[in-house]
Design a binder for these strands. Sequence first.
DNA 1: TTCGAGTGCAACCGTGAGGTTGCAGTCAAT
DNA 2: ATTGACTGCAACCTCACGGTTGCACTCGAA
Lengths: 114, 114
Amino acid sequence: MSEPGLVAVFAALGDDTRWRILIALGEGEASASALAGRLPVTRQAIAKHLAVLEEAGLVEPVRVGRELRYRALGSELGRTARELDRIGAEWERRLALIKRLAESPADGEASSSA
Amino acid sequence: MSEPGLVAVFAALGDDTRWRILIALGEGEASASALAGRLPVTRQAIAKHLAVLEEAGLVEPVRVGRELRYRALGSELGRTARELDRIGAEWERRLALIKRLAESPADGEASSSA
DNA sequence: TTCGAGTGCAACCGTGAGGTTGCAGTCAAT
DNA sequence: ATTGACTGCAACCTCACGGTTGCACTCGAA
């Protein structure tokens, strides 16, 4: 439960502005104010987005003097990716199985795999 | 060079009801009506969600008589997972690099006023 | 000490997403 | 031919989300 919910992570990643923030952070830490200088939105909007991203575990705050910078965390992305891949693979497996059954002749073609 | 659909996929995955639909579909194709029987939402709500999921490439329609069933596609999940992993790994790499620099002896980035 | 950069909080706004109800159309089976 | 299941619009509602403005506060530096 300590981990942020999968759905929350996806919801966080499902916004364009948030991605722009993440990409920007990918090039190095930055504060909300600094990001506001680069993106066409207000500092406060950025701050809200950063809160969402932090909640999702995609970003981490770092104090530097009176500045509050954020750093992009790849680990959560990695974990999410693995989870996604697992689920997707499962669906594909099942789908392949179904197709296999559908294509198998309904005759006396029994006893293939067991 | 992220594909234009990436964010759409995440947005589609960022909803709880949609996940429940996907999980249900993961166990086999089903129509909107059938799904409405299993989930605590209306058939129409499900239909809208299915439209979103189809748009994101996560689901595929299959006609069966007058029924319109949907099937979960693992391939898109797989592709998305790979993309996620790539980006996450890049951030981690950069982060490791920064930490390395910070720990190196008398170097330290003296360029900034700190 | 004063000044300014940077942050935090709160109120407010418009739009769209998630959901519902209602109705009309279509097609398979009896 | 009738019926019933299933689909496809369309209108409508509510509320959270993305965004803004405004103000108060803190703290580092001149």
